[in-house]
């Protein structure tokens, strides 16, 4: 399986995305003979092999979709070993670093490899990604993943403390990405790694104090075009909404007045008659579920009902009530050798 070349049919050994529902998605390595337990029952790996990507596969008590794994889907399902970057930031990083096939990128640190997959996809098949992390286990896990995902030729991963030692590469990089606690310590070590045509650098930091120091280091280091950006995703839920109108015409106002006068009389017969009329006016008995039945005969609710009218439902994009408010600041800069 390879992240960098589409394939139509699932093969034994592919890592695929299994989609049960939007909140139940799994990256799954297909191994003949194995069984994957889902909330819809057992899913035999053998029943997936040979299927076309994008098709339905049968579980014992339902079905699932099998999808081709892209870096963006991998970001949603990968095992977290660290905090990861998500697609809104990743996509901006790739565009702002001017990445395209053939480019050489240096990354520190590798973390869980969320960004690395997207970088590798963009620079493939002729580019190179050198990625470093000071954590030994993370390095070896990431290396295995890159190999398994067909990125072995494009990605080189190594244990290294880039903050202290720089990249250890000379005259090679078109772009650099730093996700380090003290990027300002690493920046003076970066110059030698850029190729002679220069290149772009991005530093990701969650805190503004880090950004402050980073920008100073970039100025001192002769970088130009220094910009700091913040990019947030605002998702919308698309749904049907219906808000009943309040009718405030003269006619309605007269009617409500009548109701209040009648209830003062206390004549129950008239009350019933009027209620019927009001209901036909409001078209739908279910208007305002909130008004409980026991209250429905009260004066107040009758007046309210006589003023309301069910409107047609509209489709609307409703912003999510709670969203991530901060991920990190992205500082970009251009390096030119003098």
């Amino acid at each position: 399986m390879s992240f960098i070349e589409y394939r139509d049919l699932v093969k034994n050994g592919d890592t695929v995305l299994i989609y049960l529902s939007i909140s139940n998605i799994y990256a799954l390595k297909i191994t003949s003979g194995k069984v994957f337990q889902t909330k819809y029952g057992a899913l035999k790996h053998d029943s997936i092999i040979g299927k076309r990507y994008g098709n339905v596969v049968q579980c014992s008590r339902g079905w699932a979709y099998v999808l081709f794994l892209t870096p963006e889907l991998w970001t949603l399902t990968l095992p977290h070993r660290t905090q990861i970057l998500y697609t809104p930031d990743i996509s901006l990083v790739i565009l702002q670093l001017d990445l395209k096939p053939g480019k050489v990128v240096c990354e520190a640190g590798t973390g869980s490899g969320s960004l690395s997959h997207a970088l590798a996809r963009t620079i493939a098949p002729t580019g190179q990604l050198y990625t470093f992390d000071f954590h030994e286990q993370r390095v070896s896990l990431a290396r295995e993943e890159f190999q398994e995902h067909g990125l072995g030729d494009i990605v080189t991963v190594q244990q290294r403390d880039v903050c202290a030692e720089g990249f250890g590469l000379e005259d090679i990089a078109d772009a650099m990405f730093l996700d380090l606690p003290h990027p300002w310590e690493a920046i003076p070590l970066m110059n030698v790694s850029f190729r002679c045509s220069g290149g772009r650098l991005c530093s990701f930091s969650p805190c503004i104090e880090q950004v402050q120091k980073t920008c100073e280091a970039l100025h001192t280091g002769g970088f130009t075009d220094i910009t700091t950006l913040e990019c947030l995703l605002r998702p919308f839920e698309v749904k049907e909404v219906s808000l009943p109108h309040l009718h405030l015409s003269e006619e309605t106002l007269n009617k409500t007045r009548k109701i209040s006068l009648e209830s003062q009389d206390g004549t129950t017969d008239v009350k019933k008659e009027e209620t019927g009329k009001i209901n036909t006016n409001s078209l739908d008995d279910t208007t305002g579920d909130a008004v409980s039945f026991s209250k429905s005969n009260s004066k107040r609710s009758r007046i309210e009902k006589s003023m309301e009218n069910v409107c047609e439902a509209e489709w609307a994009a409703v912003p999510s009530l709670q969203i991530p408010g901060h991920t990190g600041y992205l500082t970009f800069a251009t390096f030119t050798h003098s």
Partner: peptide, 30 residues
Amino acid sequence: VDCYRKLKDKGETLFLKLTETWLRSYQVLP
């Protein structure tokens, strides 16, 4: 929103999402 509904009705899509991104740039000086 209209496009979203038509695609939902057709039932041939997954991960259908309507989003926008918010981009803010900063002046960074001591």
